[in-house]
């Protein structure tokens, strides 16, 4: 079996094992770990766009919100009609419904990604950043105005289907998909597009298509992460997905050293844990956070975890 597949199976087994930990985990720890897992999904998927393909998207939270809303809608409105009261259903049914909700959320987000990506991906650099930011904000305003999805108040009483196993399993799948996609002859096209679009086209690659694929795949996983988030927090509001959330994810990617998979995962862990550690200094922690961001760019622009790397295997 190819190595990535072995790694994926091991990770899935470990994810399953975590929930069946003897005695269970401390609830606070469980909370933090779930947050880490969701952030890993978001950061690793965005890394495909911002890191490997070199496009600057500031709209990841927008896609996350699409997934969060649509998957919650499935759980709240669609599922009861199909299988009756969820809490009364068996464990397998519940799992199947949740999986369906997550995938629906992911697909809707991917669709939104396609809709946003096709027109805007011919823009470069900071222009693309702004358009994606703009789309993210538009998505937010739309959700604020859709009554059936709770309007400005958002949705609540979402079933708490998200477990650590789900989160870690999805995180493992995300890492696997992004890794396999990039680590192939086909995947060299993402990197080529990042390095020089004109040269990429001149060797027969279609940079636009690569950018759209990266964008849609990333949006899909952001949507799934949104679904996990919604079924973890149990209530969601449009303002929870504004562009500061997008920036947080971008910072993870940059801190990890754009396009460095391990670094991005470490950065996602670090940036989820950091606010927890800094809790004692409460209000000053965000100042510290932004200061660190500026200092990082000044002192270590290649990212915190980007060391002279091994070449990826051919």
């Amino acid at each position: 079996m190819p190595r990535p597949h072995v790694a994926l199976l091991l990770a899935l087994a470990a994810a399953y094992g975590v929930s069946h930990f003897p005695g269970g985990l401390d609830p606070y720890l469980l909370d933090v770990l779930t947050g880490i897992g969701i952030n890993i999904i978001l950061a690793v998927s965005l890394n495909l766009v911002n890191g490997y393909t070199g496009q600057f998207s500031l709209g990841h939270a927008g896609f996350m919100s699409v997934g969060a809303y649509l998957s919650s809608a499935v759980s709240l409105f669609v599922a009861p009609k199909l299988v009756g009261e969820l809490s009364a259903a068996g464990e397998v049914t519940q799992g199947a419904v949740f999986l369906a909700a997550l995938i629906t959320g992911g697909f809707c987000a991917a669709l939104a990604g396609l809709f946003v990506g096709v027109p805007s991906l011919r823009l470069r650099g900071d222009y693309l950043a702004l358009v994606t930011l703009g789309f993210g904000e538009i998505i937010r305003v739309i959700f604020q105005n859709v009554e059936i999805l709770g309007g400005a108040l958002g949705l609540n009483a979402i079933p708490g289907s998200t477990t650590l196993t789900w989160v870690l399993a999805v995180a493992a799948v995300t890492v696997f998909v992004v890794h396999c996609l990039v680590d192939s002859t086909y995947g060299r096209g993402f990197l080529a597009t990042r390095d020089d679009e004109i040269a990429a086209a001149a060797v027969g690659l279609n940079p636009t298509r690569y950018k759209i694929v990266a964008f849609v795949v990333a949006a899909f996983f952001a949507g799934v992460a949104g679904g996990l988030y919604a079924h973890f927090k149990l209530t969601i509001t449009p303002t929870g997905f504004d562009f500061t959330r997008s920036i947080e994810i971008v910072v993870m990617v940059i801190l990890g050293g754009m396009g460095n998979a391990v670094g991005v995962i470490l950065a996602a862990v670090l940036l989820t844990v950091l606010p927890e550690v800094l809790r004692p200094i409460a209000e000053y922690r965000m100042i510290l956070y932004s200061l660190l961001l500026v200092l990082l760019m000044l002192l270590r622009p290649q990212g915190l975890f980007n060391f002279p790397a091994r070449r990826p295997r051919g």
Binding site: L181, R188, D196, G204
Partner: peptide
């Protein structure tokens, strides 16, 4: 050139036109 890619990967990237398997195979 694709400056950050290895010399080999520069050539690999150009081999995509004659790749025999679809992207999903990755």
């Amino acid at each position: 050139l694709f400056g950050s890619l290895s010399v080999l990967d520069n050539v690999r990237a150009a081999c995509n036109l004659h790749r025999a398997t679809a992207p999903g195979h990755a």
